[in-house]
Every structure is written in C-alpha cells, then in structure tokens.
Design a protein around this nucleic acid. Structure first.
Lengths: 192, 192
DNA sequence: GTAGCTTGTTGACCGTTGCTCAGCAAGCCG
DNA sequence: CGGCTTGCTGAGCAACGGTCAACAAGCTAC
C-alpha cells in the first residue's frame, strides 16, 4: 500500500488563483520575482504547469499579479490610521514603514529589487505604489500636490527607502533618531 | 556571383572581447542587461554562440562584464578634475552627474534599473560603483568617513538619482536650482 | 613547402523553461 | 443514464543557456 502522494483536489477558480498568488508571495523573500519558475510554483501547488497557464495567460501575467499582491499588503500596512491628528499621520506612517522593513527585511528587499528590475511591467506596478505613497504623504501633510512637490516627495522616499534598508543592516543611530531625521528632512524639503 | 555576406574574420582575443562588450553597451539603452540574449549578441558580432562562450564562461559572466564596463565609463566621467579647490569638486561632480543623465537618459536609466535588478552579481557591481561614488564625495568634501556618514551620503545619492531622473523627464525647476538644492541638502545632512 | 603547433572558430547536440493544445474526468443537472 | 460545464493533465514545440569534439587560419621550424 503506497501513501497516496496527495491526491490532486479539484478547486474553485478563485481558490486556485489565490493559492498560486500566495505561493508566489511565499517565494518572494528568497527569489527575485521574475526568476521564479513556473515548474517550481506548480510543483508546490501540486498541479501541472498547464493549469497555471489556465489561470495566468503568461509568466509575466503571473508574477505581476504576485507583485501587485505584495504592493497591496505594504500599502494597507502603511495606510493612515483614522482618528489621529493630521500632523501625526506622517510620523506614524514613517514609523510603520521602518517597522515593516525591520520585520520583513529580506522579503521587502526582494520586493524593492524585483520592482526596480528590468521588467517594465513590474517596474510599472512599483511606480504606482510609489505614487500612491506620495499621495498618502501629501494628504497626510495636508499639502496640495503640484508637480514639483510630487517630485521632491518621491525623491525623499527614495532617500528614505535606501537609508532605512542600510540602517536595518547596520544601525548607526537610535531608531527614534532615524525617524526624526527622515521626518525633519521631509519638512525642510517642502519648506524650501 | 553572390555578394559574400561579410566573410567572418579572425580576430585577436582582446579584440573580440572588446567587441562583444561594446555590443553589449550598445544594446544596454534598449534592453535590460540580463534580458539580452546570447543569440542576439552573437548575431550582431557575426559569430557563433559558441565563440561567445569561449570568451565568457556564462551569460552572467558576460553581462556582468558589460555592466562593469558601463559603471567604469560613468565613474571616469564623474572623477574629480584635478586643480580645482576642494569645495568646488562636489558641485562639479554634481553638475557632471546631471549632465550625464541629461545626455544618456535611456542608457542611464537602463543601467540603474539593470543594476538594481534581481541578479545579485549585477547588484553587487552597482554597490561597488555607489561605494566608489561615496568615496569620491567624501574625499571631495574632505570629510573622514565613519559608518554613519557613509550611510547618509549613500542615501543622499539615492535621493539625487531619483530626483535627477524625474527632473530630466519633467523639469520643474531651473537646472541651477536643482544642483543647488541637491548640494544644499547634502551639506545640511552632514551638518546635522 | 610542408609538418606541426597554437588558437580563433564552428556545428551538432542536450537540458531546461515558457507556452500550446487536444482531450480526459469530476461534478452537476435533466 | 446522457450530456453539459469546467477543473485539470500529458505530450509536444520553440527558444535559450551551455557543452564538446573537431575544423581551420596563421605562425614557426625544419
């Protein structure tokens, strides 16, 4: 009698899609998005490659879905908490951002890397995410958004991203100091 | 009588290597580094795939060589001009950097993108380049380099990179203003 | 000039991977 | 039971990275 090696179950379309995206998210921390192979994902899901192509038209279609899912989780985590005074929202977001990078280090780095990577589609998704973050920040600061301000906030976010990632790897200052520094630069940038 | 379609010539090892890297550099602006195919490169060089593998052990080996070549060109362009007073060096570098991005827009974007991309080897090369730029900046400012300062300068460079790329796409201020803003940001960062 | 060495160069072949397609089979309704 | 929808598979193709044995261009040595 052999241990029947997981008899493949029939699932609803929604379930399968969700399962496949979830597998992609699990793999994200260890593998750059575009490098994960269809074979591997299908194997983990216990299905054939063909089935994956039934749900996602192409490999790109698949990993953009995974990337978008990752972006959504991040955005939701950073979303402003209602009921706080407006000027604390920005600081709160910053603190949540730092906490996020601290907690999900590798996964986040993988996400950022994959996002900036060669593939224009994935890059596009990350662009959207950044724009959304800029929107969040500007409304949190109750500032109107002209083109110039958007550019500055976006660049400030690049600064933040880089510094936080470095800081997590080698903390050269107190956590509070880091947040204060980032916060201070944002305001001084927008005042000038 | 047929037009002999470019009779393949025998070249010295050095020539071939240089030619192949040059082709990679030409392709950089239009194609993310890791996505250029060996077939395409070989075809452009008028040689067989096999020959490329004779000079580069693997595809990765090839495109890291291309990436390194691109990085070298950039570094050389930014290198401090001897004979200038120390405090003008930083501004000069900044201006050359802005000019560089203005001139080579797509190629540079492709380089940055490819550099941050999934492949750890390519990412490593870009890391080195950034570190070298940080070194250049710190010595230009005649500052000692502790870990904290390095982090700040690196993050500032991320800021600069992002802002300049955005600015080239949509100039929201005068060129001089941009350079002054970046320069001012750097000094105020290092004073705090 | 021809034998022989070095070395630039190639074509044939292999394994993997993204992707297609015809068709099987599980569940459900009549 | 027959027939319908639909989740699902296996065989197979094309493209790509990579290997290998062998050819051939140019040089030197006799």
């Amino acid at each position: 009698m052999t241990h029947a090696p997981v008899p493949p179950r029939r699932r609803s379309a929604g379930d399968r899609r969700a399962q496949l995206v979830a597998i992609g998210l699990e793999l994200l921390p260890t593998t750059p998005v575009q490098e994960l192979t269809i074979d591997e994902v299908a194997r983990r899901a216990g299905i054939s490659r063909s089935l994956l192509f039934h749900y996602f038209a192409s490999k790109r279609d698949y990993y953009t879905a995974v990337t978008r899912a990752a972006a959504d989780v991040l955005l939701e985590h950073l979303a402003p908490r209602p009921g706080l005074p407006a000027d604390e929202q920005a600081t709160g977001m910053l603190e949540r951002y730092v906490g996020w990078v601290e907690t999900y280090r590798d996964a986040h780095l993988s996400f950022v890397r994959g996002a900036a990577a060669g593939d224009p589609w994935v890059a596009g998704i990350y662009e959207e995410t950044r724009e959304a973050l800029v929107d969040l920040t500007l409304t949190a600061l109750e500032l109107p958004d002209d083109a110039r301000r958007r550019q500055l906030v976006r660049a400030w976010f690049a600064f933040t991203e880089d510094l936080v990632i470095q800081w997590v790897r080698e903390p050269t200052m107190e956590r509070a100091e880091l947040v204060a520094l980032l916060r201070g630069f944002l305001t001084s940038l927008l005042d000038a």
